[in-house]
Amino acid sequence: MRIWASALAIWAGLVLPAMAQTDPVFEARRAAQQIDMAGLALQDAKGAQDRVAALTQTVRAYESGLVALREGLRRAAIRQQAIQLELDARHEEVAQLLAVLVTMERSPETLLLLHPSGPVGTARSAMVLGEITPALQARAEALRSQLEEVALLHDLQVNAEQTLSDGLQGVQTARTALSQAISDRRDLPQRFAADADKLLQLLESSDTLEAFASGLTGLSADDALPPASNGFDQANGALPLPVQGVVLRKFQESDAAGITRPGMLLATAPQALVTTPDAATIRYLGPLLDYGNVIILEPAGDTLLVLAGMDQVFGSVGQVLPPGAPVGLMGGIDPKVTANGANLSEGGGSARTETLYIELRKANTPVDPAPWFRVRKE
């Protein structure tokens, strides 16, 4: 019976601990369903009364689904690799366990119980076998479960490739339709008319964002009109971020070069949609210094919200936007994903290649924007 004891010793502690509280297979499947629902929403948006709002929600749904699916597949790939490495490292032990199980299966139970020392030895053999067999069976079930999980994770990654492809195509279609719907829109209120000559002069004379924002407050504003938002100053962390992403650098936090800026930097996915956190008037949009495309919003009196680093910006100066209105798209190219998840195992933030700069100015003075928003940092 020493072979049974040896097998048990070899397999002590072989079962892998759970790698995460949430099942990556469940996460990936739920994300795939979200992408499918976004596809249905895209079809419904064609006949929506407010196509801009409907398409904005559709793009957001696609973005959330794609982020969740990539994360689920990334974790599935890590889980599969961990199980495979464990099994490879215990190849000898697995082979011994399988040999023991095969021997037990092929040998009659009466033969296994016989012992050369006679009836007493046989009785002892029966007792030992009765104790060891359930333990060996449990180890065999653990091995079977791991092998089935590896197969399930592999199939998930292969089958999700088409879902990812469909999602990337769908979100691009929705973005294009959204851009067209914004161009066709004529129902937004206009708070004031932009003075193109004054804006141009201000652009040419400003060498910093601070100088431009300070000069902007004195251009074309009609103080007789109420602010676009009545609750911006009382947001207290309730406002959504303008784009789906995570905080890369906080207010006045130095970057790798030691440079600090009076704003917050978000890491976002390529082509991510940027929206207004609250109702606001567009004070400026377009290229500005080295910030790329910039949109400056006025959500409340004496308050400017600067969003910088987009590839495209939507709207026109003087328009009053409702909360959640689209104002731009980030740059970059949506990453392609292979079935084996090779480019997903580098980390959850590996797909966030773009950055959006957020600066909040009150009375021409930058303040930390974080208290206004629901923020998270990886």
Results as ranks from 00 to 15, higher is better:
R191W: 00
D197E: 15
L188E: 01
N236Q: 15
D255S: 04
S205F: 03
G237E: 04
D233Y: 03
Q244A: 14
Q201T: 14
L188W: 02
T208L: 03
L241D: 13
A196G: 10
S220I: 00
S205V: 06
Q201C: 10
D255V: 06
Q252E: 12
L203V: 15
L241N: 12
F212I: 04
R249K: 14
A228Q: 06
V243T: 10
Q252T: 05
G237A: 09
V246L: 10
S214P: 00
L199M: 13
S220N: 10
P226N: 05
V247Y: 11
G231V: 07
A235P: 11
N236H: 15
G237P: 15
P240S: 14
G258D: 14
K250F: 13
E253T: 09
Q244G: 08
G245A: 11
R185I: 02
G245Q: 13
S206T: 09
L239H: 05
E253M: 07
S183Y: 07
D187F: 01
G231R: 12
A194F: 00
S205W: 01
L239A: 13
F212E: 09
R191E: 00
S254C: 11
G231E: 12
S254F: 09
D197Q: 14
F251I: 14
P240F: 06
R185Q: 14
A194D: 04
R186C: 01
G237K: 04
A213L: 14
D207V: 15
L241V: 15
L209E: 08
A193Q: 07
L203N: 12
G218F: 02
L241Y: 06
A224N: 13
L239S: 09
F251D: 14
S254H: 11
L225C: 08
N230P: 06
N230R: 12
G258P: 15
A238Y: 02
S206L: 11
D207L: 12
L219A: 00
D255P: 13
G218S: 13
A213G: 07
A224V: 08
S229V: 04
R186V: 01
L216M: 08
T208Q: 06
L203D: 05
R185S: 12
T217F: 04
P189Y: 00
A211M: 13
L199Y: 06
S229E: 02
G237M: 04
D195L: 03
G215D: 01
A228G: 07
D255K: 08
A256C: 02
R185V: 04
D255Q: 05
P242R: 08
Q201P: 09
F192R: 01
D255G: 10
G218E: 10
D195H: 07
G215N: 02
F251Y: 15
Q234G: 03
L202N: 09
Q252V: 02
S183E: 13
S214I: 01
A193T: 10
G215K: 02
